[in-house]
């Protein structure tokens, strides 16, 4: 995973459920299709205008509801650089780590405004707001999760551990 991500902040509210990122009626049609509708019910311009490296910033309980990984895959397909939220729903949080999407829990996420230019250091849990000229410290992940993140997700991590043990 990249050690530094820079992009524009896209601000969302509380309790954004996975069904908004991967809308049920499109999920069976493949990631090219459902990612093109990602979060459109909340911000219609999002899937079309989001740029590689942009950062999704949200309030509390991001990724609630269904356990669908397509929510993470949609964000990844759109090349969202990271998600910063006050806190995450637990299944989404695990899914993101397992699929190598940087997620940072940061109680000050609400201080970031839509459109701010943001720099994220996922391995340090650090966020720099270039627009407001300030820094926030998010939660650091425990070492065993860092290993998965550094490997880029659970599958590459298991691939490494399996090949090193055989």
């Amino acid at each position: 995973m990249e050690s530094r991500i820079v992009g524009r902040a896209w601000k969302f509210g509380d309790s954004i459920d996975t069904g908004q990122m991967a809308i049920g009626q499109y999920t069976r049609l493949g990631v090219e299709v459902y990612s093109a509708h990602c979060l459109e019910n909340l911000r219609p311009e999002f899937p079309q205008t989001v740029q590689p490296g942009d950062i999704v910033v949200a309030g509390k309980n991001f990724g609630s509801g269904s356990s669908r990984e397509s929510a993470v895959l949609a964000l990844r397909y759109l090349q969202v650089g990271a998600v910063v939220a006050e806190f995450f729903s637990r299944i989404f949080f695990r899914n993101a780590i397992n699929l190598g999407l940087p997620v940072i829990e940061c109680p000050q996420a609400n201080l970031i405004d839509d459109g701010n230019n943001i720099e994220v250091y996922p391995l340090q849990g650090k966020i720099v707001n270039l627009t407001q000229n300030c820094t926030y410290q998010g939660l650091m992940l425990p070492e065993h999760l860092m290993k998965i993140i550094r490997a880029g997700g659970l599958v590459p991590y298991l691939e490494q551990t399996i090949s090193s043990s055989s």
Binding site: S67, R68, E69, V72, I91, R94, N98, L99, V155, L158
Partner: peptide, 18 residues
């Protein structure tokens, strides 16, 4: 408890989960 697909893949392969 509910988990994602990649998480269950880890359980299938290793038998374990954190």
């Amino acid at each position: 408890t509910g988990v994602g697909s990649t998480e269950i893949l880890g359980v299938l392969v290793t038998g374990q989960m954190w």
